[in-house]
């Protein structure tokens, strides 16, 4: 065993990278669920974003354009779901699951021409002297721009839901769509916007995996990240700050367990491998269990179908 080989600074820096796709997908899903819609298709939207972003980045040579198109691709997938569930009133759980399967299939088909290709590199932001600060510089100021973008997005979503009128309307739709409708808010368009936002975020998360974290295209490469994002939203009791915490915990323990293995810690590998799932869920459950009142509970209309006649 050689725990000294683990450099905590590098560890924290790489956990920020490992957590970024989950943060992006989870914060998008949080907004969707806050509006009262349960979209289980996160995995499908992520993988679609992953291939859209990859393909566009390879063809155009521009990672930024790739990310933009990944967001569009994810949003387009999400709008299929929105159309089916909001206008045709299909079951949200079944439609979401179908979206995941559909996304995996479509991405594999589109991706055939892109196997074994290297994408253009995303440059790190040069923060000048900030990156040279010992310890903090390496942890905080030495990443690609998507890491900061994801953090900024979490802050924006938090502020939007907490302080703005728009956030209040979104939450009202999620808590009681009938009341919101009676007040004159247009429930279906609001939900469609939320769904599209969720899809765009998931698409960005997927593109982060295919363009930066791995970086290459392979079928099914998101490998369950969308499901982790869904679980984190639930265990974070629908709060933006805790989504961040949950994603960092998960990403951090995933990276840590690999480092511990590499350092030869004499703990059974099986225990280390399942630890990210166990610890993340345990911490978030304990936190929401300690909460008093209904503040931490799910949006009341989550997964319910809205129709103006009812």
């Amino acid at each position: 065993m050689n725990l000294g080989a683990i450099d905590p600074v590098l560890l924290i820096a790489s956990l920020m990278v490992a957590a970024t796709p989950i943060i992006l997908a989870a914060i998008g899903e949080l907004v969707v669920e806050k509006s009262g819609v349960l979209n289980l298709g996160v995995e499908g939207m992520m993988i679609t974003g992953a291939i859209c972003g990859f393909a566009v980045a390879v063809e155009s040579g521009s990672p930024v354009l790739g990310f933009a198109l990944a967001a569009l691709g994810g949003a387009a997938m999400a709008l299929i779901f929105g159309l089916l569930t909001q206008y045709l009133l299909s079951n949200q759980v079944a439609t979401g699951l179908a979206l995941t399967l559909f996304g995996l299939g479509v991405s594999a088909m589109v991706g055939q021409a892109y196997r074994g290709i290297k994408p253009p590199a995303t440059t790190r932001i040069d923060m000048g002297p900030l990156s040279d600060i010992p310890v903090l510089g390496r942890i905080l100021f030495n990443h690609d721009w998507m890491v900061y973008f994801a953090l900024a997005l979490v802050a924006c979503v938090w502020a939007f839901l907490k302080f703005t009128r728009g956030g209040l309307i979104l939450r009202a739709v999620g808590e009681s769509h009938d009341a919101a409708h009676a007040l004159g808010y247009r429930v279906v368009p609001i939900r469609l916007l939320a769904i599209a936002f969720g899809g765009a975020c998931a698409g960005l998360g997927g593109a982060y995996i295919s363009l930066i974290r791995v970086p290459q295209w392979t079928d099914g490469m998101t490998a369950g990240a969308g499901w982790i994002a869904l679980a984190i939203v639930v265990f974070a009791s629908w709060r933006a700050g805790r989504v961040l915490l949950g994603a960092y915990l998960f990403g951090g323990i995933t990276v840590l367990q690999l480092n511990l293995q590499a350092a030869g810690l004499p703990v059974p590998v099986e225990v280390l491998s399942m630890s990210p799932y166990l610890i993340t869920i345990a911490v978030l459950v304990v936190m929401s269990a300690r909460q008093r009142g209904a503040a931490g509970s799910a949006p009341a209309m989550l997964g319910r179908i809205f129709h103006a006649s009812s």
Binding site: S14, I209, T218, A223, L258, A262
Partner: peptide, 8 residues
């Protein structure tokens, strides 16, 4: 699992 292999 490309992401996990990359992390490892």
């Amino acid at each position: 699992d490309p992401a996990k292999e990359a992390d490892a």
